[in-house]
């Protein structure tokens, strides 16, 4: 018996990345824009999707994949808006992985315009897992505090868009929106910045327009 050293150099996330790339290619080829929503629990992802559906659903076909540790509640809220929704119950896992999205693949209608994936509420773990999305959006709500970008850098460095949500609460809380934007841009100078309030409706239209423009962009590239 002898010992032997073997060089490997393999990515622990390699298998996830491979599945994610297959998902992205298949969905993009069909002209579907996929958006991965990431944030802490309670920053308003589901409420934002409900508000967005009011603007998008009359003209576009959208569907939602909901990731939660337990319950079907979020998917039920989305279905109540007349939008198809599938719930992934992770049973304890703190994030979604590409293979979980892959399993749902046969259910996804080919004529969709937008596929939203609402990740498990967690600002740390989901940031490491590509789900095959075209756009990753991180939400930061006013009650969470403006210091989050630098405390949770990976969620912000890997995202394309930052949505500062619940801005109707800004007058009541010491959240400095300009400071949060500045710090987020220091971490990721390419971030698209948007502010929304699902309660007052502020910024929802601009967010919908950003998604529509991104959809048109992938379709132009396909053509």
């Amino acid at each position: 018996m002898k010992t032997k050293e073997v060089m490997v150099l393999e990515d622990l996330l390699g298998s996830n990345k491979k599945i994610a790339n297959q998902i992205r290619k298949k969905l993009t080829d069909k002209g579907i824009l996929t958006i991965n929503l990431l944030s802490s629990p309670g920053s308003g992802k589901t409420t934002l999707l409900e508000s967005l559906s009011e603007i998008l659903a009359p003209e576009y076909k959208m569907a939602v994949i909901e990731g939660d540790i337990e319950t079907e509640r979020d998917a039920e809220r989305i279905r109540a808006k007349g939008i198809p929704a599938w719930q992934i119950i992770t049973g304890g896992a703190c994030h979604l992985e590409a293979k979980m999205i892959g399993k749902l693949f046969p259910k996804i209608p080919a004529d969709l315009d937008f596929l939203f994936i609402e990740n498990v509420g967690n600002l740390v773990c989901p940031a490491s897992f590509d789900l095959g999305e075209n756009i990753r959006c991180v939400l930061l709500s006013i009650p969470e505090g403006d210091d989050k970008p630098k405390k949770y850098p990976k969620a912000f460095t890997t995202s394309h868009c930052l949505i500062i949500s619940k801005t109707d609460l800004a007058p009541a809380l010491p959240f400095n929106i300009e400071q949060a934007k500045k710090e987020a841009l220091e971490i990721n100078p390419n971030l698209k910045l948007l502010t929304t309030s699902a309660q007052s409706g502020t910024g929802i239209k601009e967010l919908a327009e950003y998604f529509i423009e991104s959809l048109q962009k992938i379709r132009r590239t396909n053509a």
């Binding site: 010992t3 050293e5 073997v6 060089m7 150099l9």
Partner: peptide, 22 residues
Amino acid sequence: SSNLKTLSGMELYLEKMELEVD
């Protein structure tokens, strides 16, 4: 400038292993 390239720091790699073989 913010025109930067990340050279390292994102790794999650299995670099090498030591095995017992016959």
